[in-house]
Design a protein around this nucleic acid. Structure first.
Length: 501
RNA sequence: GGCGCUAUGGUGUAGUUGGUUAACACGCUGCCCUCUCAAGGCAGAGAUCGCGGGUUCGAGCCCCGCUAGCGCUACCA
């Protein structure tokens, strides 16, 4: 039997990085064993599900390069089938109608309500099988149903026994039936609930391996009971350790904001391969010490055995903008940017520059050589794709800003620069050919003449030409910016006016 | 309250059938390189392996207890 796995997010917000990691692991597993990776949108919660969210999930998967093999399944389309299955279970005596009126509960008090009810039940000697309608005679149950009395449908869990399954990550799992309540399959309004829908859809989609977050580990026992009631063979299960916030709490969009949303990484200039690589290392490690892995290597090395059981903390600091997300993710992105094949980087750069009106068609044509050389030069110290249009702006446009700190440090500290720089421009005009070596020699000669350190002029020139205090070797910058623009920028009075005004 | 899962430096992870100074990556510190910042090279700091007992000649690895965090316990998903 071929392996069929699925990623089954509920479209109630943007794609969470934890969910994205689940998708990745499913995808890697499928590709590794030559199976199929399917996508199912669990949109049964009509109130909270949105189309925008579904789009964001699809876009996110596409961005990560996780293509799915069959048509997307929308769970809501199957609701009638789910309802019918639940009703069938009643007929078979495996489920029953619960006529208890629905209890309305405020979202905030849910946890407390659970605890309170549990305490009350144990005080009264009640257990999970104490529902008064559990053993209601069939005739009466049907009579009340026909009389349009609303009812929920609950699974009739046997009084004695235990479920067990072998989790590929957490090992043998057992749970006594007494710990499992007669779970609701169908709400009194006829709406099928999560556990029912998942099981039915997984059966219908022929899912062989369920790989999902550890938050479902205990749900799995209920689902196994459902598989049994439905007469279906349960799939294999593999639960993934959760990804937590720095305070070891749940990583949520509401509490932690955009760091948890996958689209943030796309929007903030991450290279998909880098983020994917980083994500793969959250809760999984290869048996080698190699951490930078291409998609092919990831597929080749991936195995369920390499998944760890302890939760992973996604490390970031809301207070420090430089650590807005995990430092290792940032490092990995920089690593990819400076080492990946130029051919793969260029399309991303094209999009980034185009979005900032810095792109020129010539970069793919007669100026391609210049463009590649420039990118090669500046990518060495950039961390995100955004850096190319921000710190790197001066390479692609004459309209760039001067970094205030850079102006103070490299220009204003030495008043003589206001005369020296235009004089340097004079010298540069005569450099022929205008190469890094030649401008190097010319600048140093000029520094000697003027009786200043070369470093003073070099740093000043960097700020004049790029607006920045830091950047590549200055003479490479001269080369790439070119004589004409370099000279013009050296003569500019803008930095002085800008800061003093 | 009940049940379950987890617990190795700041973070992500290795630690094979228990065996000398607990490994790798990120981050951090210092030095080298140098026109700046990175990268790179070198050198460091940082872990009584959650705590307490046991078994053993010897335990991060085995056993028991405890604690903490998280998850499930919903007519949410």
């Amino acid at each position: 039997m071929t392996v069929r796995v699925r990623f089954a997010p509920s479209p109630t917000g943007y794609l969470h990085i934890g969910a994205a990691r689940s998708a990745l692991f499913n995808w890697l597993y499928a590709r590794k064993v030559g199976g199929l990776f399917l996508l199912r949108i669990e949109d049964t919660d009509l109130q909270r599900s949105t189309e925008a969210s579904t789009r964001s999930i699809i876009e996110g998967l596409e961005w990560l390069g996780l293509n799915y093999d069959e048509e997307i399944v929308f769970q809501s389309d199957n609701a009638p089938k789910h309802r019918a299955a639940a009703l069938r279970l009643i007929d078979e005596g495996k489920a029953y109608r619960d006529f208890t009126p629905k209890e309305e509960r405020a979202d905030a008090s849910i946890k407390q309500g659970i605890v309170d009810r549990a305490r009350a039940h144990s005080a009264e000697g009640q257990d999970n099988r104490s529902n008064p309608f559990r053993d209601l005679p069939k005739e009466e149950s049907e009579r009340r149903a026909t009389a349009k009395e609303p009812f929920a449908v609950r699974l009739k869990v046997a009084r004695e026994g235990k479920t067990h399954f072998e989790d590929a990550v957490y090992g043998t799992q057992e749970r006594d039936y007494t710990e499992i309540e007669d779970l609701v399959l169908l709400r009194s309004d006829g709406h099928p609930l999560y556990n029912l829908s998942v099981v039915l859809d997984d059966i219908e989609m022929n899912i062989s391996d369920v790989i999902r977050g550890q938050d479902h580990l205990t749900n799995t026992h209920k689902q196994i009971l459902l598989y049994e009631a439905l007469g279906a063979k349960p799939p294999r299960f593999a639960h993934l350790p959760l990804i937590l916030a720095p305070n070891k709490g749940k990583l949520s969009k509401r509490k932690h904001g955009e760091v948890v949303s996958l689209t943030t990484y796309r929007d903030k200039g991450f290279v998909p391969a880098a983020f994917r690589n980083f994500l793969a290392l959250m809760g999984w490690s290869p048996d080698s010490e190699q951490e930078i892995m291409t998609m092919d290597e990831l597929v080749q090395k991936f195995s369920l055995e390499g998944i760890s059981r302890s939760p992973a903390i996604f490390n970031f600091s809301e207070a420090d903008p430089r650590q807005w997300t995990d430092a290792k993710a940032l490092w990995m992105n920089a690593e990819y940017i400076r080492t990946m094949p130029l051919a793969e980087l260029l399309p991303m750069l094209k999009a980034e520059l185009r979005a900032n009106k810095l792109w020129r068609e010539e970069y793919e044509d007669e100026d391609r050589g210049w463009f590649e050389k420039t990118v090669e030069l500046i990518r060495q110290r950039f961390h995100t794709l955004k850096d190319f249009s921000a710190q790197g702006r001066a390479y692609f446009s004459d309209d760039f800003d001067f970094d205030e700190a850079a102006v103070k440090k490299n220009l204003l500290k030495e008043p003589r620069l206001r005369e020296l720089l235009p004089a340097l421009a004079e010298k540069m005009e005569e450099v022929e050919p205008f190469t890094a070596e030649m401008s190097d020699a010319a600048l140093r000669a000029f520094a000697d003449e003027a009786g200043v350190k070369a470093g003073l002029l070099i740093n000043a020139a960097r700020t004049m030409l790029t607006g920045q205090a830091v950047g590549p070797s200055m003479f490479e910058v001269f080369d790439v910016i070119g004589r004409e623009r370099s000279v013009r920028r050296l003569r500019s009075q803008e930095p002085w006016f800008d800061v003093s005004s």
